[in-house]
Amino acid sequence: MAPSRSGFPGLLRAWRDRLSPADAGFTVTDGRRAPGLRREELAQLAGLSVDYVLRLEQGRAKNPSSQVVGALARALQLSRTERDQLYRGAGLLPPQDGTVSTHVPAGVQRLAVRLGDVPIGVFTADWTLVWWNTMWSALHGDPAVLPTAERNLARALFGDGAARASMLPVRSERGPDALAASIVADLKDAASRYPADAQLDRLVRELRETSDAFAHQWATPTAAAQHTTDRKTIRHPRIGDILLDCDVLIVPGADLRMVTYTAAAGSSGAGKLDLLRVTGGSQARVNNAPGQYT
């Protein structure tokens, strides 16, 4: 049901009041007065400053970007209809059908929040990271330091920017080239299904022009297996090598990939994840920031 208050500021306040802090991954303590999320909690989830959220709610900040509105919609766990209403309230066209969706359904977010002990990252069809939890940041480094365009796995593998520089050394049991080949296969599939998506087209053109390895993979007619399940050794700068099972869970109807890392109980990997939980879990709780993480 749509909130009774209209206009972007009213929608923002009403949906912030509606969202349960527990569903957003926050611990609810006795004496909490706010019926929903506090303003600073929404700011943290959306990767915005508290002052900017305040100005948006007061109507003093005009013309938020589509990236900001998309991040707020994900943070507020809006339905597609509500998301579109928020875009229109900001004077923007909602995301069009036929383009890669960055919408993360509320049920997916609630599920991921309840699996907080597991590193989880949610990726779009073009392998752009749009949602992650604290354990993901503890394992891979905080995506908050990267601009939006660089939070993309293809750019991390084939680019020469911040995404590539921030990626930790990873060794796959399927071999050194398996991950790269499977990501290119996924991008080919996405490009065939979203031919009108300008951002995806720009990503592919950029990597074909700047990476010989990507250009070669893109021109190779042999189909590689899509990226689904793997066993990886991640070289963490503080803890060293961590052997983990990496599973990619497809979200039907949303065209999202939920990537999880787990280890068998009692294994070395499980012990190192426990250590990460203690030593690396003090960063941002969850995030889906629009452009930068400040």
Rank of each mutant, 00 (worst) to 15 (best):
G7D: 06
P9F: 01
D17W: 11
A22F: 11
D23M: 11
D23H: 05
A24M: 04
T27H: 12
G36A: 07
R39N: 08
E41S: 04
A46Q: 14
V53L: 02
V53R: 12
L56G: 09
A61T: 12
S66Y: 01
S66V: 03
Q67W: 13
V69K: 13
G70F: 06
G70C: 08
R80N: 05
Q85C: 05
Y87A: 03
A90G: 03
L92R: 10
V100F: 02
V108K: 01
R110C: 15
L111D: 11
G116S: 12
P119F: 05
I120E: 04
I120P: 04
W127G: 01
W131M: 08
G141V: 02
A144S: 09
T148Q: 11
E150Q: 10
E150L: 08
R151C: 10
A156M: 11
L157T: 12
F158N: 05
A162S: 12
A163S: 14
S166Y: 05
S166K: 04
L168I: 03
R171C: 01
P176F: 15
L179I: 14
L179K: 01
S192N: 04
D197K: 01
E206H: 14
D212L: 04
D212C: 03
A215C: 06
A219H: 08
P221D: 02
A225R: 00
A225Y: 02
H236F: 13
D241Q: 10
L243N: 13
I250G: 01
D255I: 10
R257W: 05
M258T: 00
V259A: 08
T260W: 09
S267C: 11
L275R: 12
L276R: 06
T279H: 14
A289F: 10
G291L: 02
